[in-house]
């Protein structure tokens, strides 16, 4: 007990590490309201100019729309594929299960540049023109492992006896999945989707290789970094994305933890 009462550096270190993580982001948010085109101290004064400019930049709006379409599309595809795979992995033991798991997990760690080159070469040889679609194909590959893991983790917690009980009461296996397992796993499935959505919305390294003429938001922002006069605009978008991400993450985690506790 004496050890408990002893002064501990850990809370202070926790605070320090978080300061390190949050300060750069906070700085972007502060600069987004600063009345100056260069991002330097001292601050000049408060303005909403940059946010107003955002609305008058059609290429930016277009790239946001592209990114939203991409993230929703690839997110939905990854969620359907990943949920089905998670059910299969948790409920069945089959030959090749280990191999399937290994391959599913690989895109989680494989360097993006390798996957990007492989997909680019593969698609080009099949004469598939590069577009948002080709980026989407790649995004499903990298989102899939996380969806499978999140949904599988939840399914493990749902006892198979519930399904068996439903089947004893006369429903089919498929009916049991639809009426028992899916509703119980729903918070995890939605969390999986939101995860895949964010992954795709923020993704740059793959998109840089596979994008055609319609830029995604990260690609557009990157292209604007070359122009110093566009910097405040990028910073304002960054501040909006930071705010949006924080809200989305809190919601996702709420679904994943508290939402599934009932």
């Amino acid at each position: 007990m004496a050890a408990r009462a002893r002064f501990s550096l850990s809370p202070f270190y926790f605070f320090l590490l978080n300061a390190f993580l949050y300060l750069p982001l906070l700085l972007l948010v502060i600069f987004s309201f600063n009345d100056s085109t260069s991002l330097v101290f001292p601050l000049r004064g408060f303005t909403l100019q940059w946010y107003r400019d955002l609305m008058q930049t059609p290429e930016l709006i277009e790239s946001v729309v592209n990114s939203l379409l991409l993230a929703v599309g690839s997110g939905l595809a990854a969620t359907v594929l990943g949920t089905l795979a998670a059910i299969g992995l948790v409920r069945f033991r089959f030959a090749g299960r280990g191999l399937f798991l290994s391959i599913t997990a690989m895109p989680l760690v494989i360097p993006s540049v390798v996957l990007a080159v492989a997909l680019l070469i593969g698609l080009i040889q099949l004469n598939v023109p590069l577009s948002l679609w080709t980026v989407g194909l790649g995004h499903v590959v990298i989102s899939l492992p996380v969806v499978v893991m999140i949904v599988a983790a939840r399914l493990v917690g749902i006892s198979a006896t519930l399904e068996e009980a439903a089947m004893d009461l006369g429903t089919t296996f498929w009916g049991a999945q639809w009426r028992v397992t899916l509703p119980l796993a729903m918070p995890a499935i939605v969390a999986g989707f939101l995860n895949a959505f964010t992954t795709s919305f923020d993704e740059f390294a793959l998109a840089f290789f596979l994008i055609g003429r319609q830029p995604t938001l990260p690609i557009y922002l990157y292209s604007q970094l070359r122009f110093p006069s566009r910097l405040p605009l990028v910073v304002a978008v960054a501040a909006l994305i930071i705010a949006g991400s924080v809200l989305l993450i809190i919601f996702t985690e709420w679904l994943r933890r508290w939402g599934s506790e009932e």
């Binding site: 750069p24 970094l225 930071i242 993450i249």
Partner: peptide, 19 residues
């Protein structure tokens, strides 16, 4: 602790460029 991790990778690097 996790929140910064889920914010756009590109923007987090960009923040350092600004700094």
């Amino acid at each position: 602790l996790m929140v910064p991790g889920w914010i756009s990778f590109l923007l987090r690097i960009f923040a350092w460029k600004v700094i």
